Lab assay of single mutants.
Amino acid sequence: MDVFMKGLSKAKEGVVAAAEKTKQGVAEAAGKTKEGVLYVGSKTKEGVVHGVATVAEKTKEQVTNVGGAVVTGVTAVAQKTVEGAGSIAAATGFVKKDQLGKNEEGAPQEGILEDMPVDPDNEAYEMPSEEGYQDYEPEA
């Protein structure tokens, strides 16, 4: 019985440690998101679009440190934060509304985080759909 109880105690310690790591990862992701939003706020009209992409990228980098179902929630929060940063930029006159959601080359930025393969159960990952990809044929 002692062996059984000791095993359960060790398992509990492992769960607590994993929860603490997840909590730490979420806190880091939130900190990076805040950094990115402050970065966007300090940019001029020309830099705002690039700044919004930076927020998304920093958040995406930190999301990889967070495991399990938390990833889905962090990704949703990050996307809403990026959308909010863009709205703030438009409201303050840093950028025109028609410039939001495009990178410096004018290509749409939507789907940055949505296409990231995420499995809350950590069982399997699927690649994003290939609808947006084109076949590449090298020139002879």
Rank of each mutant, 00 (worst) to 15 (best):
G93H: 06
Q134C: 11
V63A: 03
E28H: 04
K23T: 03
A30S: 02
V37S: 01
G93W: 07
E105S: 14
A27T: 03
K96G: 10
A69F: 08
D115R: 05
K102A: 14
K43F: 05
G41H: 14
E20M: 11
A19H: 04
T92Y: 04
K32T: 03
S129M: 11
V37Y: 11
A124H: 06
K6A: 11
K96P: 02
Q134P: 12
D119S: 05
E131S: 14
E130N: 12
H50K: 11
Q79K: 13
G86D: 03
K45N: 01
V74L: 15
G31W: 15
K102P: 06
A124S: 11
A89Y: 13
G47M: 09
G36C: 09
F4G: 00
N65I: 12
G7Y: 08
V55P: 00
K10F: 08
E126L: 10
Y136F: 15
E126R: 07
G73V: 12
P128K: 07
Q109F: 12
E114C: 15
K10Q: 02
V26H: 00
V77R: 03
A76M: 05
P117G: 09
K10I: 15
G73C: 13
M127H: 11
L38A: 06
A11S: 03
K21V: 08
K45D: 00
T59N: 01
K96S: 05
A76Y: 15
V74M: 14
A124G: 10
K34N: 01
D121V: 09
Q62Y: 09
A107I: 06
A91Q: 08
E20S: 04
V66H: 03
K23P: 00
A78H: 04
K45L: 15
V15A: 03
V16G: 02
Y133L: 11
D135E: 09
K6L: 12
E137A: 08
Y133M: 08
E105H: 02
V55K: 02
D115K: 05
T33P: 00
K45M: 07
Q109T: 15
K96A: 12
G51F: 12
D121A: 05
A90L: 13
A19Y: 15
T72C: 13
A69S: 03
M127C: 10
A30M: 13
V95I: 12
K80P: 02
V70N: 02
T72F: 08
V55C: 07
N65M: 08
S9H: 07
A19W: 12
Q79E: 03
G106F: 10
Q134S: 05
D2A: 02
L100G: 09
G101H: 04
E137W: 05
K6H: 04
P120R: 12
V3A: 03
A11I: 15
K58Y: 10
E105A: 11
A27N: 06
V49I: 11
I112V: 14
E35P: 01
E110C: 10
T72M: 14
I88M: 08
F4Y: 15
L100T: 08
A53F: 12
K12F: 04
Q134M: 11
D121N: 05
K23W: 15
A53T: 08
N103T: 08
A78C: 10
A89E: 03
E83A: 14
A30W: 11
E61F: 11
A76G: 06
L8F: 04
K102Q: 02
V95P: 14
E104P: 05
A85S: 04
V70R: 04
L100I: 06
K21I: 10
V26L: 15
Q24D: 04
A29E: 00
V82A: 12
A89V: 14
V82R: 10
K102H: 05
V95G: 08
G31E: 04
T75M: 11
E20H: 12
G68A: 05
E20A: 06
G14Q: 12
A53V: 15
G68I: 13
D135Y: 10
V3R: 13
A17S: 09
S9K: 11
G36H: 15
N103D: 14
G25F: 15
Y133T: 07
G31T: 10
A76F: 09
G93T: 03
Q99N: 08
T81L: 14
V40S: 01
Y39L: 12
V77L: 09
Q62M: 11
G84F: 13
K32P: 00
V49D: 01
E131D: 12
T64A: 14
E130P: 10
N65V: 10
E139G: 05
F94Y: 15
T92H: 03
Q62V: 10
K6Y: 02
E123I: 05
Q62L: 10
V52R: 01
N122L: 05
P108Y: 04
K45I: 14
V118A: 09
V74E: 01
D121I: 09
P108R: 08
G51S: 06
A89R: 13
I88C: 03
D98N: 15
T54N: 05
G86N: 06
K96M: 13
K58T: 05
E104R: 10
K45R: 11
V63R: 02
V66K: 02
G86R: 05
T54F: 14
V40G: 00
G86W: 13
A140S: 11
V55I: 15
E139P: 03
G36I: 15
D98V: 03
K32I: 07
L100H: 03
G25M: 14
K60Q: 06
G31Y: 09
T72H: 15
K102R: 14
K10H: 04
E13L: 02
G93R: 07
Q134H: 08
A30F: 14
V71L: 04
V49A: 08
G7P: 01
G68K: 13
P128R: 07
E20L: 05
K21W: 13
A78F: 14
V49Y: 13
E131C: 13
K43W: 15
G7T: 06
E123R: 04
T75S: 08
E123K: 10
Y136C: 08
E46Y: 11
K12P: 00
G14A: 15
G41N: 02
K80G: 02
G7L: 15
E104Q: 11
S9Y: 14
V118G: 13
N65F: 14
D121Y: 12
K58N: 03
P138D: 06
E139F: 09
T92F: 15
G86L: 14
G86C: 15
L113C: 04
K32D: 00
G7F: 06
E35Y: 08
T92W: 12
G51N: 04
K32S: 02
G86E: 12
V48C: 04
V77M: 10
E114H: 08
A91D: 03
Y133D: 13
A53S: 09
T33C: 03
T64S: 11
E137Q: 06
V63G: 01
Q79M: 13
A140F: 15
V74H: 01
H50D: 04
G51V: 12
V77K: 03
D115M: 10
E139V: 12
V52K: 02
P120G: 07
E61R: 12
T59G: 08
V70T: 02
G7W: 15
V55W: 11
G84P: 02
N122H: 12
D119K: 04
L8V: 05
A18K: 02
E114W: 05
E28I: 10
S9M: 10
V95S: 06
S9I: 10
T75G: 10
E61S: 13
D119E: 06
Q62G: 08
Q99D: 15
A19K: 02
I88A: 02
